[in-house]
């Protein structure tokens, strides 16, 4: 029992799968990994074209602050038209 308690749990072993310095594009079927350069304030997904404003939790740790409103709105409207939703 004691030996078993020293063993890494499933959750602990998953720590090795973490990625740093990147985040995912938030378009569901895209989900491409985006890697902003240090200090970047904006990034565009090369696959689907969505544009995000970037914030830095700390050095080497970026996150999506929000969308670039006008740009993404246009993409959404085009997609909506294509899907034929009124």
């Amino acid at each position: 029992m004691v030996e078993e308690r020293d063993k890494l749990s499933t959750a602990e072993s998953l720590r090795s799968t973490r990625t740093y310095g990147k985040f995912r594009c938030h378009n569901p079927t895209c989900m491409g990994r985006l890697e902003p350069k240090p200090g970047d304030k904006e990034i565009e997904c090369p696959i689907c074209g969505m544009r995000f404003r970037v914030a830095w939790v700390k050095k080497g740790f970026p996150r999506i602050r929000g969308p670039v409103w006008e740009h993404n709105r246009k993409i959404a409207e085009e997609a909506l038209k294509k899907k034929g939703v009124e």
Partner: peptide, 26 residues
Amino acid sequence: QITSAKVNQTMGTLGTPFIWGATNSW
């Protein structure tokens, strides 16, 4: 294990509002 998670480092800096950024984006 808890504090090394990226999500908790973000939450420890911005609180739960951190979820807003990505969620409202998509």
